[in-house]
Simulated assay, not measured.
Amino acid sequence: MEFSVVQGDIAEESADALVNAAGTSLRMGSGVAGALRRNANGPINDEAMSKGPVDLGEVAVTDAFDLDAEYVIHAAAMPHYGDGRATPESIRQATRNTLERADELGCDSIVMPILGTGAAGFEFERGARLVCEEIDDYEPATLTDVRVIGYSERETEQVREIAATLRD
């Protein structure tokens, strides 16, 4: 499936669903989760945690509150126990489950960060390749606008370079 790469703060994006890079407890701490929690202006953390814990690689859905989206899909690519580190399989599974859930919800558009990096400790470029490969291989039912977001210019450029290799 084709997707685009954008740069910015996911909490300022507009889509049917925004994706939270979550841990298995679904507690919304820092990074992507913190940005979404702060901008939602509602009990998104409480709602998310009421749906957890979830298994590694699984997802949960909450209301987006004041975010410019209908849903937030919380993708648990990292465990909130043990070493707290994401794995290649947890990143792939969380990405795939996110896309499937977005289709089940009837979403046309979704914005997804690179799961499993940052606090989850997985190397960014490798994580970006895993996420982009899963999106590229996915056959959507309703999704037509999938955006992968990088926060910094450097991250965004890395994701763009990876996406270009998938399209060649």
Rank of each mutant, 00 (worst) to 15 (best):
V5N: 08
V6E: 14
V6A: 03
Q7T: 06
G8V: 08
G8I: 01
S14H: 15
S14E: 11
A15V: 03
D16F: 14
A17V: 11
A17K: 07
A21M: 13
A22T: 11
A22C: 09
G23F: 13
S25I: 10
M28P: 11
A33V: 13
G34L: 08
R38P: 05
G42Q: 02
A48I: 01
M49L: 08
S50N: 04
G52V: 05
P53N: 12
D55H: 00
G57P: 03
E58S: 01
V61Q: 07
D63P: 14
A64K: 00
F65A: 06
D68A: 05
R85P: 10
A86N: 10
A86I: 03
T87W: 01
S90E: 11
R92L: 12
T95V: 11
T98N: 06
E100Q: 12
L115E: 04
F122R: 03
E125L: 06
E125D: 04
G127H: 00
R129W: 08
R129M: 04
L130M: 08
L130H: 02
V131T: 06
E133H: 06
I135Q: 00
I135T: 02
D136N: 14
T142C: 02
L143C: 04
T144G: 10
V148W: 07
Y151S: 09
S152K: 04
S152P: 14
E153C: 03
E153D: 15
T165V: 07
L166T: 05
D168E: 15
